[in-house]
Amino acid sequence: MRTAQHAQLALLLEVAGTPKPGNVDRRRDFDDLRFEHFLTGAVGACDGLEAAAAGEPVGESFDTAVAGMSQQRGGNAQFGALLLLVPLVRAATTWGLTPEEASATVEATTVDDAAGFYRAFEHVDVFVEEPPPEAEDLDVRRGADAIPALRDRELTLYDVMELSAPEDGVAAEWTNDFRRTFAAAETVRDGDGPVPDRVAEAFIELLAREPDTMVAKQHGPAVAESVRERAAMLRHAARDEREAFADELVERGVNPGTMADITAAATFVALERDGVVP
């Protein structure tokens, strides 16, 4: 199976894993975002993933992947996951899929890559916080209109991720050697049972270790920490307890989406590098 296909399969396995508290999975939908939207998004992202595998620039490949992912009626299904997968695919097909090579890939991004990233925001609505006044011209919600400011400041895509990393867990993977991604890949690789169950286990492990930054942005740090504490208690709990927690978070509208994005990236690493076969 080709590298881009592994990335696409990782998106499918991530949403198929259950229970993943607070996230869409094969047993849970949101009112406006359903399991089928994630399946469609994974298929739509194929061209962008193939472009990354062929050596196309990271920003351009990401924009293509998001444009394809957006061709379903649910909206933003996998923006953050693709932001991790695209450079990992590029690394895997260029130098090798290791933390060092993944870091080298993102550190080599350019201002043009940053422009591609900003264009991707024109395809789907992505939850972001208000930027500080000194960075209003870099507000990602401006899409392509912010590109002149990027060029004036000579900001690469890695630079943009560095600015976001303190508050955004996906950006932090870019600037921290994809640490959680590669650690969670070991859970997928070494677990027992069907691969979707191992994926769900990796998600719980991630959620138990650090507060989810999406939850912190949407509901505050206290809620994010309480979700982390509850996940830590459930690491060795019976399945019905995890199911109950998953249902509770969906009902409350608490969505640990950052950890789901990292789980998708980790699943790709397990498929591509560790030889995990569903």
Rank of each mutant, 00 (worst) to 15 (best):
P133D: 14
F121A: 05
T109K: 11
E154W: 00
A146E: 05
T109S: 12
A120L: 01
F117P: 00
V124G: 08
T94Q: 13
E100N: 09
D113M: 04
T98K: 07
L155W: 10
L157F: 15
F117R: 00
A135H: 12
R141G: 08
T105H: 06
R153M: 03
D152C: 02
E154I: 00
R153F: 02
A108V: 07
R141E: 04
E122T: 05
A114Q: 06
D113K: 05
G96N: 09
L155K: 09
A120D: 09
L97D: 07
A135M: 14
L155H: 12
P148T: 02
R90A: 15
T156D: 12
A120V: 03
D139A: 08
E130P: 12
A102D: 06
R153H: 13
L97T: 05
P131K: 00
L97C: 03
V128Q: 12
T105W: 04
V126K: 05
V111L: 04
E129Q: 13
V140C: 09
V124M: 08
P148F: 01
T110F: 06
D112W: 00
A104M: 12
E130A: 14
D145E: 15
D145V: 03
S103A: 15
H123D: 11
A144T: 14
A135Q: 14
V140W: 01
